[in-house]
């Protein structure tokens, strides 16, 4: 595979969490690295010099920026239209094959589907290990609750995908790297009628913290109340596994795992989490996992760095006590 066969473009709206940009840069390094392809980065939204710097330091050859003006972070239709306009005007489409990467997660997957539908490329969606084999783009996708992995092949030259990798490295800015502003006036679209109400939520998003506390099937409502206090005391946030979300312990946007979010905290404190492959797939490989579970046979102990075999009922109140007020 020659380096000039494939172009990789990482796309991220600036209104999204900075972790989304880091995720997609890591994915671009992964695809670019295995295919020895160069990658570019498309930043959508009001210019953010710090993000441009991150993309350049991560090794992007070109960083395009495009500011569509006022924009809601979750107006995917608009972001897709802007991304499509930018991809059309960008000059990097000269290689035989192109892969556009969106941040992993539900928002990125939606954007991925819209961009693919917009320019006729193949939507790979949530996938792993994108590669070129025998002149064809290939990738893997896990299905059936993470129990089997399917390799998929396309004769098409353009792929849109969301790939989960770990943290990006920052080898430094390339000699030839450049910053290139693009222009595009998005077409006006009908406004939706939206009302906002405050909730009792006080913890930050799970993607943005250094310490993440996560409760699983083994924790009840009283336990989640303790976990919430713990998350506050640790200046972190609170997540849940799929069963915990199903049981209504935490809202769906706090779900970690294949169908939830991918997180990269420094420490992940898993309480009453059994440790299914689908859940573990949502945690970065360089995150330190600390597990508390009453079942010594729980699979979580096979991947945790530190483990405590005990009941949360016993440990959590004492731990909160030890952490002291505030």
């Amino acid at each position: 595979m020659k380096s000039n066969d494939l172009t990789v473009i990482a796309v991220a709206p600036n209104r999204w969490q900075v972790s989304a940009l880091e995720d997609v840069l890591a994915a671009a390094q992964r695809v670019g690295g295995s295919a020895q392809a160069r990658f570019g980065c498309l930043l959508l939204g009001h210019p953010e010099p710090e993000r441009e710097r991150l993309a350049l330091e991560a090794g992007a050859c070109t960083v395009w920026t495009l500011d569509p003006g006022e924009a809601d972070a979750e107006d995917y239709e608009m972001w897709a239209a802007v991304a499509l306009a930018a991809l059309e005007s960008s000059q990097l489409w000269s290689t035989p094959r192109r892969v556009v990467l969106l941040p992993p997660g539900a928002a990125g997957e939606e954007l991925c589907a819209r961009i693919a539908a917009g320019n006729g490329s193949v939507a790979a969606g949530r996938c792993e290990d994108i590669r070129v084999l025998d002149g064809q783009l290939q990738f893997d996708r896990e299905g059936w609750g993470g129990r089997l992995s399917l390799s998929l092949i396309t004769a098409a030259n353009d792929l849109c995908a969301c790939l989960r990798a770990d943290k990006p490295s920052y080898p430094g800015r390339r000699m030839e790297a450049r910053l290139m502003p693009l222009e595009h006036e998005p077409a006006p679209r009908p406004q939706r009628q939206i009302e906002y109400r405050e909730t009792s939520e006080k913890l930050p998003p799970i993607e943005s913290v250094k310490t993440l506390v996560c409760g699983g099937r083994g924790v009840n409502e009283a336990g989640f109340a303790l976990l919430e206090r713990l998350a506050e005391a640790l200046d972190g946030s609170l997540a849940g596994s799929l069963p915990a979300v199903d049981a209504g312990m935490v809202p769906a946007y706090r779900q970690v795992g294949v169908s939830g979010k991918f997180v990269r905290p420094d420490v992940y404190f898993a309480v009453g989490v059994s440790g299914t492959p689908q859940h573990l797939a949502g945690i970065s490989a360089d995150t330190r996992i600390v597990a508390l579970n009453s079942d010594p046979e729980a699979p979580i102990f096979r991947v945790a760095d530190v483990g405590v075999v005990n009941d949360w009922e016993t440990i959590l109140p004492a731990l909160l006590e030890a952490l002291g007020p505030g």
């Binding site: 129990r147 992995s149 396309t154 597990a291 102990f301």
Partner: peptide, 30 residues
Amino acid sequence: GLQLGSLQIPAERQRGDHCTLLTGDVSQQV
């Protein structure tokens, strides 16, 4: 479109090879 290649059992994700279990009584564990 997308054509099927092959099916595999996903490789278990590699992590640190062993877990340090905290011992002692509750106060030591905490």
